Measured scan of single mutants.
Amino acid sequence: MKVTIEENEETGKFTIKVKTEDGEEKTIEIPKENLEEILAKLPPNVEII
């Protein structure tokens, strides 16, 4: 699983794009305050880009 994290400076939010092993892609946008909480919940086999 690969996770790409991009900061949107205009909105102050982060866009998180997840690509699973089977090629499925999902995108979510979260507030900056929630980034550490989300990262802590990721499984250890995740590659963060």
Rank of each mutant, 00 (worst) to 15 (best):
G12L: 02
E21S: 10
I5W: 03
E29W: 09
T4V: 08
K17N: 12
P43Q: 01
E7C: 14
I30Q: 00
D22T: 11
K13E: 10
E47T: 13
T11V: 04
E24D: 10
M1A: 08
G12N: 06
N34D: 14
T20E: 08
P44Y: 12
K19I: 15
E36K: 12
V3M: 03
K41H: 08
K26T: 14
T27K: 07
E9P: 13
T15L: 11
P31D: 15
I5Y: 02
P44T: 07
M1R: 00
E9I: 14
L42V: 04
L35I: 08
I28P: 00
G12S: 04
L42K: 01
F14T: 05
L35R: 02
K41W: 11
V18Y: 14
E10N: 08
I16W: 00
E25P: 02
I5S: 02
N34R: 14
I28W: 14
E6Y: 15
K26W: 15
K17D: 02
K17A: 08
G12E: 04
N34W: 15
N45D: 11
I5H: 00
P31A: 13
D22M: 07
K19G: 09
E24W: 08
K19V: 15
T20V: 07
K32T: 06
E36W: 14
V3G: 01
E37G: 08
I38W: 15
T20Y: 15
V46K: 05
T11I: 04
A40V: 05
T27N: 03
I28T: 06
E21C: 12
F14C: 12
L42A: 00
G12K: 05
E21M: 05
L39V: 03
E9H: 14
K41E: 07
E7H: 13
L42I: 05
I30V: 15
V18R: 00
T15H: 06
I5Q: 00
E6Q: 10
K17M: 10
L35Q: 01
K41P: 00
N34A: 13
K26G: 04
F14K: 01
E7Q: 08
E24H: 10
E29S: 10
E47S: 11
P44C: 07
E10Q: 11
V18S: 01
P31T: 14
N8W: 03
I5D: 00
G23E: 04
I28R: 01
V3D: 02
V18Q: 01
E10F: 10
I28C: 15
L39Y: 02
T4D: 02
A40E: 09
E33G: 08
E37K: 07
E7N: 06
P31M: 12
